[in-house]
Write a protein that binds this DNA or RNA. Structure first.
Lengths: 134, 134
DNA sequence: TTATCTCCTACTAAATTAGTCGGTATTTTG
DNA sequence: CAAAATACCGACTAATTTAGTAGGAGATAA
């Protein structure tokens, strides 16, 4: 529930892109400077965002990144989920290794945790990038 | 947004206590066995929960822990927040009247992150332990 | 008096985080 | 064409956090 700087940086950068949605590609160096984020780290964050098709890129001078869809069509859940792995998921104890609730897990209180996780997911899905600009 | 096992264990244990709310004190060993959680780890988790006055304890044989208030009066936010530190917090977000970043940062998108954080907090505050039992 | 309990501190192995560094490939621009 | 700017890629690392263990001390009920 504490967000990592990865999520924070990623979300901030996505908001930055949303604010400049009409301007075409924005180089990461601009975002890194503006938001005071390490460029190298931001690059790796964007590799993940691109893989999830949340952003598209253009190489070369005057290249950069842009949102792959309009800000109304990207919700915060997708971003956090992409950067943090299974967003709003609890661990469930099972012998051996960890299993996420929602997969095969027989703990008695699991439905309760699932309820909580779903409430968070719903709250995040309800917030679009377009709600966070202006 | 991924919950640590600390939060997961803590929340599961709190739900366990809520389910047995009328039965008086429950020893941690019972919870640890039932939910397959390491006892020593659970003890430390409960030290935190107790400090936050979410549970009360009784020492000695036939002692144990119980919720400090009725399940209707304890929300999930309090639990997660207690165990995870500032729940639903981003880096570079206000806490009180200070801005947190680690570095000094003049982040422009901060209000947006705050909006997201508040949505999550609200969702969690809305869920009481009593909603998670039965 | 003995078995359960809470409570406390210290240690640790493993994982994750938050980077850095150095280099390659691609594209625009002077 | 050459240089600069950009995405892209992998390896390394230091610090922190996580998820425990271990070994007790003190309280209480049976």
């Amino acid at each position: 529930m504490k967000f990592s700087t990865r999520s924070t940086y990623g979300l901030k950068a996505m908001i930055h892109l949303a604010q400049n949605w009409q301007k075409g590609s924005i180089p990461l160096s601009a975002i890194a400077n503006n938001e005071n984020i390490s460029l190298g780290y931001l690059e790796r964050i964007f590799a993940v965002l691109k893989k999830a098709k949340l952003v598209k890129s253009e190489k070369g001078a005057s290249g950069g990144y842009a949102l792959s869809r309009s800000p109304e069509d990207i919700d915060v859940y997708s971003i956090i989920n992409t950067l943090e792995g299974e967003a709003s998921s609890f661990h469930c104890v099972e012998k051996g290794d960890k299993v996420y609730c929602g997969k095969k897990c027989e703990c008695s209180v699991e439905p309760a945790l699932l309820k909580v996780a779903r409430a968070i997911s719903a709250a995040l899905k309800d917030i679009k990038l377009s709600d966070l600009i202006g």
